[in-house]
Every structure is written in structure tokens, then in C-alpha cells.
Nucleic acid binder design. Structure first.
Lengths: 206, 206
DNA sequence: TAGATTGTTAATCGATTAACAATC
DNA sequence: TAGATTGTTAATCGATTAACAATC
């Protein structure tokens, strides 16, 4: 009865596809059309969606507005999510300046760092807090999601503290496999690993 | 005979694990130790490695220096890779400033943008080139890897041009599913999709 | 040697696909 | 109605795991 993780991971892609088709002015779509757009099979899309209900009509396809709404409901994206950011380096700065997360309903509400030179300094609309105050701040803010943007050497320690403080999902930018209780979700942003696996397929000669 | 993609994608994690154990001063390891480190099963690690040869010794485990060397060889990481970057926005700046890629043998050798205000301006040690010169520059430089850091709306068009120009692997930071010939590898850096699938598991209340 | 751990086989498990009855 | 496309079943495919002989 519980839906495979691999299906859940595809739902945001379906949502993105639905939005793109809507922006083209379309009102309905088919599993076939989405499949071409995403490079998947139409059977897979129908099967994935069938885990959550019946969203289409035989012979007609899917109403885009309805599917959009349902996917957001399933993924709990019909609300705003507050996140804390740990690590006020270059990456942290870029994440705060970029509007990408906010546009999609993910808002960074606090930034932490361990460097005394950074603590107390403004960062965008926020002020960098001392990482020593992590636990109490997280409980105060009620955040459930954290972005981990600290050096590799500090990542596991900070991640454990985040888990202890009640954080339930971590977006990990550190190049480290985190060891955490299974109830804490981890999404790993790991461009180097992607590069290092793509080179397998490239001829080593120029 | 050809190795499943999912196995290839784990090799860089094995390599990272090997390096971490070496930094701890260890000289040998076991599939069991690596499994704990990475949160996988020891059988999976042994099976994955067995696709490429016999790297261990029964009763003894794996010599870390040897395994390190072999993994780098298999992944073609025993050389330097030159990459071109398309998109000189905040993200592009952060990628150039960060030493992460260079440390691992991936060097950005050219930056392109479409904005006339950016073209000709310095960006770190490079000068931003006109994206109109993409094809000729890529052929000249002989780059096989590109980083795509342009807005969503431009991503597909630029990606197609990269493929035409002979690029064989794209690290895609744009929130778009790229449609490309199957011989072009794509690695998708997609933090929003990770966030949007993690929220499925979070209670929508508080 | 005795103990340990690999490499590999066979069994299990899970995900994808093909096909089609249901039905809009 | 006729044509199209869903939702679902059963078959296929592939990946993971358990177990163990080989052997260091």
C-alpha cells in the first residue's frame, strides 16, 4: 500500500510537465503527450498516477488544471514551507539571492554559520546566526526542512544536530553520505558525483 | 555485458568512501565497512565491483590505494576534463569561484552568455564569450562536457546546440527535462525536485 | 591451520512494460 | 456510434539480497 519512493520522486517532474503544458495554453493532456515531454513511457505515467486515484477520463485524457491541483495536494505543495540554511558561504549566498525556492513556496527563514566573522552580519533580508543556537532557533521557528551547505568535514555533525532538533528533511549540498535516523529524509545535491559518473561513458582520449 | 547505469552511478560514491577511509589513515577496508559508511549492503558493493574485476582478497578485504586507483581508472578520472559553462548568472559565478570542480579534475575553460552587457566582461580568470560563438569555440577547445546554467526558457535550445557542437555530457542546472540524442549523457542538478518529493513525507500540519 | 572475507550463484524482490477491457 | 485513452492486470525485465564455496 505504500507508494514506492521512485514513484514519489517522479511526481514533481509530472507537476513541472503539467505547468509547462499549461503555459503553452493547453487545457488537457494525455499520458502519451506527457511521456514524450519527459522521455518516459505512457504506461509508467498512468501507473504512477493510479497510486493516488483516478485523475483522467477514458478517451479524453487528463484535465491539466485538475491534475496540477491534485499533484500539489499529494506532494503537500499547496502551502508554504519554511527552511533553515546552515552555511553562509558562497553557496549559501547564492541560494538566498536566488528566487527559485521562494517562487515554488520554499522560504529560507534563518541562516546559521560557525564563523565568528559572519555571525551577526546581514545576508539578504536575514542576519547570520550562531550555529550554536541551532536547536533552540529551529524549535522556535518550527522549521521542518534544512539546507545543509557547510564544508564536508562539518556536515555529519551538523546533520545530526539538525535531526536532534526535529528537522525532518535535509537538502544536502555537502559531498558526504549522511548517516541519520531513517525517519529523516535526505535529498543529496551532488554535481560532482554526476560528473564523475558521466565520464565513465566518455572516451578517455580527447 | 554492459554494466547497468545504476551501478556506474554508485562508483563515485565508492571512490569518495575510499578517499575518506584513506584520510582516516586506513590502508585496507572490507565491503562491510564501506557498506556501513554508505548505508548500502555489503553484497551490493561486492557485486558492483565484480562487474569490473577482482579488486579484493578473500579473508583480507580491499587495499584502499589499489581500489582508489582502479575506481579512478574505470571512471576515467585519471586525467583532467575540460568543461564549458553556459550562463554567467549568479550560479555561473558561484561555480567559477568554487574550487570544488577543479580540485576533482574538472576545469571550466570557457564561459558563454547571451546578454550583451555580460559578453566581454571578465569572470574570474575567464572572459564571457558570446553564446553565438558556442559551436566554433567548443570545437576549438575540444571540450566534451558542458555545464548548462541558463534560464529554463533557453535551456532546450542551448542544449540542442551543445549536442550539435559535439558535447557528449551535460550537467544541467536548468529545471527542465532535456530532449537530446541518446548518446548525450545528462546529469540533472535539481534541488527543487528533491525538495518537492521530500515534502510528500512531511505532515502538512506544522 | 582457523578465521575471515571475497566473488559468484541462485533466489527474491520490485519496477517497468505490454496489452486490453472499461468507458468517456 | 466510433475512436480514443484511461486504469489495471499479468508478463517481463532487471536489480538486490542471501548464502556459500573458494581462498587468502
Amino acid at each position: 500500500m505504500d507508494t514506492p519512493g521512485v514513484v514519489i520522486q517522479r511526481l514533481p517532474l509530472y507537476l513541472r510537465c503539467v505547468k509547462a503544458l499549461q503555459e503553452q495554453g493547453k487545457r488537457i493532456t494525455s499520458s502519451q503527450e506527457m511521456a514524450e515531454h519527459l522521455g518516459l513511457s505512457s504506461a509508467q505515467i498512468r501507473k504512477d498516477l493510479s497510486h493516488f486515484g483516478e485523475f483522467g477520463k477514458q478517451g479524453m485524457g487528463y484535465d491539466l488544471a485538475y491534475l496540477h491541483e491534485q499533484l500539489e495536494r499529494i506532494l503537500h505543495l499547496d502551502r508554504r514551507w519554511d527552511m533553515v540554511l546552515v552555511g553562509a558561504g558562497d553557496l549559501g549566498h547564492a541560494l538566498i539571492r536566488s528566487g527559485d525556492f521562494v517562487q515554488r513556496g520554499f522560504r529560507i527563514v534563518a541562516v546559521f554559520d560557525a564563523d565568528p566573522h559572519k555571525i551577526g552580519q546581514p545576508l539578504g533580508p536575514l542576519v547570520v546566526r550562531d550555529v550554536a543556537t541551532l536547536s533552540s532557533s529551529i524549535r522556535e521557528l518550527g522549521a521542518q526542512i534544512a539546507i545543509l551547505a557547510v564544508p564536508a568535514g562539518a556536515a555529519q555533525e551538523v546533520a545530526s544536530k539538525l535531526a536532534e532538533a526535529g528537522i525532518r528533511a535535509i537538502l544536502n549540498y555537502a559531498p558526504v553520505s549522511l548517516n541519520l535516523p531513517p525517519e529523516v529524509r535526505v535529498g543529496h545535491v551532488d554535481p560532482l558525483v554526476l560528473l564523475q559518473s558521466m565520464t565513465y561513458y566518455l572516451c578517455p582520449e580527447g
